[in-house]
Design a protein around this nucleic acid. Sequence first.
DNA 1: GTCTATATCCGGATAGAC
DNA 2: GTCTATCCGGATATAGAC
Lengths: 211, 211
Amino acid sequence: MIRTVPKVSDAHREQRREQILIAAWKCFARNGFHSTSMADVISEAGLSAGAVYLYFRSKEEIILAVAGQVFTGIAGRMAELFEREPPPSPAEVAGFLIEQPVLARAQTPGDLFPLLLAVWAEATRNPILADLADEILGALRQQITRLFERWESTGQDLRIPARDLAPVLVSLVQGFVTQQALVGNPSPETYRQSVVALFDAAGLGPAQPAG
Amino acid sequence: MIRTVPKVSDAHREQRREQILIAAWKCFARNGFHSTSMADVISEAGLSAGAVYLYFRSKEEIILAVAGQVFTGIAGRMAELFEREPPPSPAEVAGFLIEQPVLARAQTPGDLFPLLLAVWAEATRNPILADLADEILGALRQQITRLFERWESTGQDLRIPARDLAPVLVSLVQGFVTQQALVGNPSPETYRQSVVALFDAAGLGPAQPAG
DNA sequence: GTCTATATCCGGATAGAC
DNA sequence: GTCTATCCGGATATAGAC
């Protein structure tokens, strides 16, 4: 006569975690990690303290989960670029990355960009996040480097070592995120256009003749 | 028979404030704003709580003072570029800004860059810092724009509106700061070289013929 | 002017009822 | 599994002696 444990278990558990992470995402985007209290997250999630602590051991654990999603979300859309034929030019890669800095959970970039700044700042202090940042940023650079090399292999001239140009391209995205978060401009369209024009002028655009 | 107030007053007062700000600078660079306690700052300054609160009303006030110095320090070295004759090319401006992101109080960039990320993140939440960021970033962009226009006036072709290219250049600096803070590379030399090469290739270098 | 000691508050995490 | 009430540590800011 042993009653079975409630059947909800697994799916329910995942759903609850998601619910909490979405709430935390919103709070962190609004107020950053440190000005957000557990009470804020709990209230936003519409749960109780006891419930939240059943799914996450600590605030730290929630921060790591959210920050991890933000980080990995950035590199997520890269695969698409590898499928293009012919291989995209550096100008195209740059334009793509600026257009789609992240999708992930954010509906509006207004939510995402300040959160990104918070994650970067936190990563300079939290060893676990620092490791993650190292891994993700390394992978992103490597993928960009490979895309450049593929483009070179079609007979184009990069003029700068692919390995060295990749961080420059990453900068263009990070700087855009930073300026958007700080002052709300330039617009993605204007900025993208300027960057693409710069790459075009440098002979790294789509329509450049080989050599 | 009224005793005069101690003569140290003014100079001493400034010196004490400096002492506290330097201590706060160090603490904030190490641990960020929110993980730094007043006890940390007080201990680093070698003073007592009572003394510190005599010169600053609150932790908030200290944060604002330090963040303000960090922000304004960035735009400080720009004047030098305006004195150069002939006007520097965009490549030269970019190279200069990457070399000298800030001098200010930081002995080593290792101290400065994480602090910069902390300030940027904080500015997305603190209205006073947000205003300051708006002001400083606006001024920086405008100065860069003017430098571009001066360069154009010597018969060079920028190909991109000066006003639109300025944020791109700012990005290249912000992205460098971010990547340095996160993973410690690329080196300033390598990065500067790549950026300058990109601008050169785009016809924005020092030795390009007019037209 | 400077120090020590402390009042006060706030936030994270838990215990135990239901 | 979930909620309420609460504990406890730590941090800011102050009071009062010297």
